[in-house]
Every structure is written in C-alpha cells, then in structure tokens.
C-alpha cells in the first residue's frame, strides 16, 4: 500500500501541485499525472489500483503506465513524501 508521508504542504496551481517539506526545506513540483497520483494516495492505495485508475483517466498503455508510475513512486519514496507498506 502506498500512502502519503511526512509533513509536506501542498497546493494546487492549475493542473500541477507545488509541495514543500517544512522539515527539510525541500520543494517539489508535480505535473498533472503526478498531481493525480498525489490526490489518489491521500488514502492508502495498492499499486495495482493506481495503475488502473490512471489508465482509465489518461491515454497510456499498460506497460508505460506501470513503469512511469513506478518511477514516480520511487522518487516520492526517496524524497520521503510517501511510504510503501506491505499489504
């Protein structure tokens, strides 16, 4: 399950999201797809549910969707903006 983590502030600007970690003083920007994922993981989601949701909303094939989402989640995890819990 993937869920948000940490003390990140976020604000929507158009299709994008601006984020800041007060603890680390780090700023992030999420594009439209990233912003959608961020919305979705407000409640913990299994990866499969994310793939399915995004494939339904964006024009993308299954393989690309999986790899792009995985890359994005990897980045969020690395930044400490999300956590991945088994189950």
């Amino acid at each position: 399950m993937i869920s948000r983590h940490g003390d990140w502030l976020s604000a929507r600007v158009g299709d994008e999201i601006m984020m800041m970690s007060a603890a680390h003083g780090v700023y992030l920007g999420l594009n439209e797809v990233g912003a959608r994922i961020w919305d979705l993981i407000e409640t913990p989601q299994p990866r499969e549910a994310l793939y399915a949701a995004l494939q339904g909303e964006f024009e993308v094939d299954a393989e690309t969707c999986r790899s792009e989402v995985d890359d994005f989640l990897e980045e969020l995890l690395r930044r400490g903006a999300a956590v991945s819990d088994p189950g």
Binding site: L9, A11, M20
Partner: peptide, 14 residues
C-alpha cells in the same frame, strides 16, 4: 516561517 512563505507562493502562483 517556511510554511507562511509556501502559502504566499501558492497564492501568488494561483
């Protein structure tokens, strides 16, 4: 005051 400036930035951008 970092959150304060973040909120101001968000408002200015929006």
């Amino acid at each position: 005051q970092q959150p304060l400036y973040f909120k101001a930035a968000a408002a200015l951008a929006q």
